[in-house]
């Protein structure tokens, strides 16, 4: 008996292309052959020169909406696909392009091109503010992650096309990190490049601002396990999104102040001072920027 083959169309908006690489990385999980057996790629700008938007069972949008071209592409994808996945943090939350949220279109163009007269002709017009894909088109499934780990990609495809129940749970990055979190006597807040990591103890306990406990695990914790503090590229946990009084900086300060000898206020102040880094991936999403606790424009002025 032959099983039905599903057609997949992908489009790449303002993003880096890492999400497309993640699909090829299905091979890590030994699932690339199964992917190619079950699905037909009818449009994939990374692999084929296609300008049209053919009809497909599933559309995969990667990247945020930053220009007029992105907006029109997202709409064309919605019209041509039965179901649509916002694939990766950029499509789900705005991602790294979304960090432009704190500046106006004019400020960004001026900083990049040093004057209006230097802007090349023919490039797509930039939107006033970057936004995630769902502000322009209806999305059927969100898969955050920068990029999502291959294990979750197959789960998303099966969940949406074959209507199989998802096995992925919304857990923080710490749930897969194997470092030991313990009380230490550290009293100095370290920058990412300061000192040497001991390889075993949790980075928070060592005084590094690691966002692992506040970030949704769609990556299987590759960075913290190799000594690189989590920068929250997978987007926030449900706790941060749902609770109006809970915020990335207060939650992190709460945990870190109990694990080290640092005061909560000092940690909150440090996060506010480098807020552009800590909120970079999610600040253009209304899930974060509509929160009363989020006041990045004030923090930047200070």
């Amino acid at each position: 008996m032959t099983h039905p083959r599903y057609s997949i169309s992908t489009d790449w908006l303002s993003g880096c292309g890492g999400c497309e690489v993640a699909i090829v990385d299905l091979d890590i999980e030994g699932k690339l052959a199964k992917f190619l057996n079950d699905y037909d790629l009818v449009r994939c700008p990374v692999l084929m020169d296609t300008k049209e938007y053919p009809k497909a069972n599933l559309g995969i949008i990667t990247g945020a909406i930053r220009s007029k071209h992105d907006r029109e592409s997202a709409k064309a994808m919605r019209e041509s696909c039965d179901k649509l996945i916002a694939f990766g943090t950029c499509a789900a939350y705005g991602g790294i392009s979304g960090a432009g949220y704190v500046h106006s279109k004019e400020e960004i163009l001026n900083a990049v091109f040093q004057g209006k007269e230097n802007i090349p002709k023919g490039i797509p017009e930039m939107e006033q503010s970057p936004k995630p894909a769902d502000e322009e088109v209806k999305i059927d499934l969100y898969l955050p992650g920068c990029p999502p780990h291959p294990a979750y990609i197959f789960d998303a495809l099966n969940n949406l096309l074959k209507e199989q129940p998802s096995t992925s749970r919304p857990m923080p990055v710490c749930s897969t990190c194997r470092r030991i979190m313990k009380k230490t006597e550290v009293s100095v807040l370290k920058k990412y490049l300061d000192g040497t990591d001991d390889g075993k103890t949790c980075l928070l306990s060592q005084g590094y601002l690691c966002l692992g406990s506040l970030t949704m695990d769609r990556c299987k914790a590759p960075c913290p396990q190799r000594g690189i503090p989590c920068i929250g590229c997978g987007g926030p946990t449900l706790q941060i999104i749902l609770e109006p009084n809970r915020d990335l900086r207060t939650e992190l300060a709460e945990r870190m102040s109990r694990l080290t000898n640092m005061e909560k206020e000092k940690i909150v102040h440090e996060i506010e001072a480098s807020a552009k880094t800590h909120y970079a991936y999610t600040m253009s999403s209304q899930m974060i920027n509509r929160k009363q606790t989020f006041n990045i424009k004030k923090w930047i002025q200070q």
């Binding site: 789900a92 499934l141 969100y142 789960d155 769609r218 449900l238 999104i241 749902l242």
Partner: peptide
């Protein structure tokens, strides 16, 4: 039930994997 939560956000979160 938490009545202070925004219905739009709840609806969106239901579609998160």
């Amino acid at each position: 039930p938490n009545f202070y939560r925004e219905i739009e956000i709840i609806n969106k979160l239901e579609k998160f994997l």
